[in-house]
Design a protein around this nucleic acid. Structure first.
Lengths: 182, 182
DNA sequence: TCCAACATGTAAGGAGTTACATGATTTC
DNA sequence: GAAATCATGTAACTCCTTACATGTTGGA
């Protein structure tokens, strides 16, 4: 088993639920994986082609609503499901953190006045918005009848987001206060 | 102001403290920025050359201890300090999260038995170790007399780590319990 | 009238990693 | 005797983003 490109598996994983187009995949990533994953069109389309070359997915063209461009819908193959499962066997590569906001803070002594407070403030707003969205989704999940086999994993991913973003919100509020001074 | 490569500023920021070699920079990143930043030699050395071409740093060769290769020590220039300050003016680009562990969890339905629990367990151990290290550093910081202008920023970066890693530890312990079953 | 959503794809280019080359010294 | 530390650098390669090209429909 050679190198693994995580994007391939993100795509494969979403196709394992149901057939989707590149456009659908982008949307799904944004809506459901947004707090821990992201993909761009410029990466998704070439990866879909690569997966087809490897026979991990098949595709058909759907001539849809008049005027709209044709959709190319991809479906996972048996080989694809096997590859997805095999992906989990090797443990994930070590994380290499790259948090630019933190880099700025660490080097904050060299920052012109106000710039750090401005950045943290903007960050806090984003974090708060994400947190609210995650909590809402969790309420929906909790209220709905059991969503089947996937429920446990979605909940774990959701809990991760809520836990981490809550601490991020706390930290950034405190940091902002400290930077704006007493 | 054109593109900004964060690595350039990580390096410039460390050189703003004192002159250092590429090797020193790598070490410093690992020891003091490790919980939010990382760099490889294969990136640092070319970036140092680039910074020199831009006249943001100057360098001198230090023929050191016998047998050892010569050290090339870099020093930040006035232009370099100005560039570092200017870096803060533009707000940081939006974060694009890419957390492979979470991707695996989200797609966990397709994972062979035990693999997820194994990964989370390994992750938890790492998180615990980092957390312990961060707490130790904070105790040192708290015990030492005021470290000057930098102290505030180091504390903020340290607090970030402690806050976030604490929630990560909590989450991963809980996730592990849920995956191993009652 | 303008913007968002729908929809696919390519080209260019930068970012960043791993592996390789080289080799002495110190520490366990 | 092995492994870590000190020390610099290049080459090959992958990953991934941004910008561009193209065009319709529906809603505010």
């Amino acid at each position: 088993m050679a190198q693994v490109n995580p994007t391939e598996f993100a795509i494969l994983g979403l196709l394992a639920e149901q057939p989707r187009s590149g456009y659908d995949i982008k949307k799904e990533v944004g809506e459901r994986l947004g707090h821990f994953w992201s993909e761009s069109f410029g990466h998704i389309y070439p990866m879909l082609r690569r997966l087809r070359t490897k026979r991990l997915v098949s595709s058909r063209t759907e001539r849809s609503t008049a005027g709209r461009p044709a959709r190319r819908v991809y479906e996972i193959t048996e080989r694809g499901r096997a590859a997805l499962e095999a992906w989990f066997v090797e443990p994930p590569p070590p994380v290499r953190p790259r948090n630019e906001l933190l880099l700025r803070i660490f080097l904050g002594r060299h920052a012109p006045p106000e710039t750090l407070a401005r950045d943290i403030s903007a960050y806090r707003e984003q974090v708060d918005a994400t947190l609210e969205r995650l909590r809402e989704v969790r309420r929906e999940v909790a209220a709905s009848p059991d969503a089947g086999e996937d429920a446990l994993y979605w909940e774990l991913a959701l809990d991760y987001g809520i836990e981490v973003f809550t601490s991020l919100a706390k930290w950034s509020a405190r940091a902002e206060r400290r930077l704006r001074g007493p």
